[in-house]
Design a protein around this nucleic acid. Structure first.
Lengths: 226, 226
DNA sequence: GGATGTGAACGACTTCACAGCG
DNA sequence: CGCTGTGAAGTCGTTCACATCC
């Protein structure tokens, strides 16, 4: 998968000085989504084992993760759901809006634009960029596609700190370089390429081909097994 | 997440009997993609450090990974590219075709259907499934959308062992159950839900919301740091 | 010299097990 | 009693360092 880390791991909470691993952060997202649903359903309290069972995660792991948020759980009772949700959102940094630009207006981009899960967590696409002259000027989901030249001014104007790259593999590094020099802070890359960005810029990659091959490998392995 | 283990490492060499970790398999895919490009460009030999540098991976790691393929490298020289590519494909199980069905015909599905990287590695979508009556009967990329009821016969007829789930979160577990009872062997899940499948079925999940939140977290962290 | 393969050290993540509190 | 928080143990994965071979 992708690596990359720029900044120093800061820490918010009082008392315990632990490290948030990448894996914990991913679990935080899973916790949050599930908890928000339970919260909407009116549930007030939840225990580490309930949450763990629902997600297929060991309960001690859940407690270790949540302990990072401060002493938020009550022994003998569990965790107060609304507090927990709020603490998770704050910790993940999604207690505020995250405007983002989307580079590469193909089918994947359309899928992302219409994916409700993003808006719900505060992510909004505020600009569309594509190098194809035939696409520039088109309006998709209320946004006008603009040329990559415009990136610096678009980022300045919209205050977007995040970008999503959804272009073909051979164009991706060029786009990334452009984004970096325009001052982007984080990139979510869907192109099938290993990107190089300076350490101050965060990078998360989702490589579809890799995931599908991983699956093929697992099935391939299990082939002759009882 | 899903597990799976079982088959013995088909390995002729005496001595070293290692296990292929999930992480190694993912790197295998990255290696393969890069090596195929170099191979097409006519390169004959490659070293672990060249490959590692290109991908941002430690060279010892590369050697450890490749050692799993048998004693394929030549000390003082490097790895013979065509052999290496062939060995990787065989090991990953993509030295043969992988027909797959795609459930949920939205924008994401269209993006996947048109993604060239899949075909190149032997993955082909042989059927489209969607529960929406308005979509059933439509033809997308040469395939007619069919009802989920048809899954058992579709899997039987097409010999597809893999399925891709690209439906909304609340429908995903139902689809997975259907696929499992229709005899699927592996599922690639894009729905924002933690799926439960029996251990004989392999599962790989790509959770877009989680990845974007991971990115937000990294940027959020780095915010006030030099 | 240059590059592989690999034990051993290291580090990261997960699970266990239990003290302590409501 | 049930449930949290956490040291300790265990497991897994990565990096180092070096013997070995071309």
């Amino acid at each position: 998968m992708s690596k990359h880390e720029g900044a120093t791991p800061a820490n918010g909470s009082p008392g315990g000085e632990q490290r948030l691993s990448r894996a914990s952060v991913q679990r935080f997202s899973l916790y949050l989504r599930h908890l928000e649903r339970w919260n909407d359903e009116g549930l007030q309290v939840v225990s580490s084992s309930q949450l763990g069972d629902a997600l297929g995660i060991n309960d001690a792991q859940v407690r270790k993760d949540l302990a990072y948020l401060g002493n938020i759980g009550q022994p003998g009772i569990g965790y107060h759901l609304p507090d927990l949700v709020a603490a998770l959102r704050r910790c993940l940094g999604i207690d505020r809006p995250w405007p983002a630009v989307l580079v590469g207006v193909g089918n994947l981009a359309r899928a992302l634009l219409r994916y409700r899960g993003f808006q719900r967590q505060g992510f909004t696409f505020v600009a569309l960029i594509d190098a194809d002259p035939k696409k520039i000027g088109q309006v998709v989901d209320g946004l006008t596609v603009q040329s990559p030249d415009k990136l610096p001014e678009v980022l300045a104007k919209t205050k977007a700190e995040l970008a999503v790259i959804a272009v073909p593999g051979d164009a991706a590094q060029g786009v990334a370089d452009l984004l970096v020099s325009a001052g982007v802070r984080g990139i979510l890359n869907f192109a099938p390429t290993v990107l190089r960005v300076p350490p101050a810029v965060s990078l998360v990659s989702v490589d579809l081909a890799v995931q599908l091959e991983q699956l093929a490998f697992l099935v391939h392995l299990g082939q002759d097994e009882p």
